[in-house]
């Protein structure tokens, strides 16, 4: 009872009254409900490890996925595809996002454009990820899409269709708001005294941004980028009808490309045990990948 008192006692001290009993019942109920949420999470993680581990080996990285009904195989092209498309997304979204954040926080924080950027970034975070896929489908996959037309006009041999470019573009739209918002927070976090000292020494705005603000904000910006990587790597919805899927190694960025997440989606509905197990192994790899990105974001780049 003594231990219980420590946890559940109130400032009042009516230990035997109905109020106190009701109080304790509610406390236990609350702890019970909070504890109950552990069950599904433990179940998910347990199954991912238990069912994913048996097939996990180094061959996985070198082999192609097993066709429906056949055994063996690996996840090589899917891992490569995921890395390629997350890479494309980063190459597009990081410069735009970080530069936009610099404009918003350093050049004219109170301007209409800055407020518009903040507002748009907030709205984009709320847009369902599948809408990013729909957008990429409209502009890159469809043959009459504007980017395909632009390529035609410029003489670039790109005819649209499902491709790694389309998947990467969809992921870029998805992570852009994350990068803008985290970069802005990173810039806000730079001490005002640093800036004032820099200006006091006669540095220009550009010199202050380039030599003082950016180096100081870099770890926090990298945190945002890693969070974006974690988000993009796990996404499926923007990829299913932009990058589609492929059973073979990617020969170029202009053809349908496999990814871990779409492989899980495709394999999960196949009526073959081996393919389902492969989906679990892909899940394990994906969860490990996302966790590494998240942990890197939290630990390695954390500002002291």
């Amino acid at each position: 009872m003594a231990a219980n008192d420590h946890f559940f006692a109130t400032a009042g001290g009516h230990r035997t009254s109905s109020r106190a009993i009701g109080n304790q019942i509610l406390s236990i109920l609350c702890i019970g409900l909070a504890g109950a949420t552990l069950i599904p999470l433990v179940s998910i993680l347990f199954l991912v490890v238990k069912k994913g581990l048996p097939l996990l080996n180094l061959d996985l990285f070198r082999q192609l996925p097993p066709a429906a009904g056949s055994l063996g195989g690996g996840l090589g092209n899917a891992m490569l595809g995921t890395l390629l498309m997350v890479g494309i997304a980063l190459v597009i979204a990081t410069p735009v996002g970080v530069l936009a954040a610099i404009y918003v926080n350093e050049y004219s924080p109170t301007s209409k454009l800055a407020n518009a950027v903040r507002f748009v970034a907030k709205l984009l975070t709320g847009i369902p990820s599948i809408i990013c896929g729909v957008f990429a489908y409209a502009v890159i996959v469809l043959p009459d899409g504007p980017i395909v037309q632009l390529c035609k006009a410029l003489g670039i041999p790109f005819e649209g269709g499902f491709s790694a470019w389309a998947g990467g573009f969809a992921l870029a739209i998805l992570i852009l708001p994350t990068i803008i918002l985290t970069s802005e927070q990173a810039l806000i976090g730079v001490s005002k005294a640093y800036r004032e000292a820099s200006y006091g020494l006669g540095a220009t705005t550009f010199q202050t941004i380039w030599r003082i603000v950016l180096p100081d904000a870099l770890p926090a910006i990298m945190t945002g980028v890693m969070l974006a990587v974690a988000r993009a790597a796990g996404e499926t919805a923007p990829l299913i009808f932009t990058a589609l899927f492929s059973w073979f190694w990617a020969q170029s960025l202009t053809e349908p490309t496999a990814s871990l997440s779409v492989l899980i989606y495709n394999f999960s509905t196949l009526p073959y045990e081996h393919q389902i197990n492969m989906a679990w192994t892909a899940s394990l790899v994906l969860v490990i990948l996302v966790t590494i990105a998240n942990v890197t974001a939290q630990l390695v780049f954390r500002k002291k």
Binding site: I44, G234, Y265, L286
Partner: peptide
């Protein structure tokens, strides 16, 4: 942090 497809598979 768990990807949506993994929830689906589970």
């Amino acid at each position: 942090a768990i990807p949506s497809v993994v929830y689906g598979l589970w």
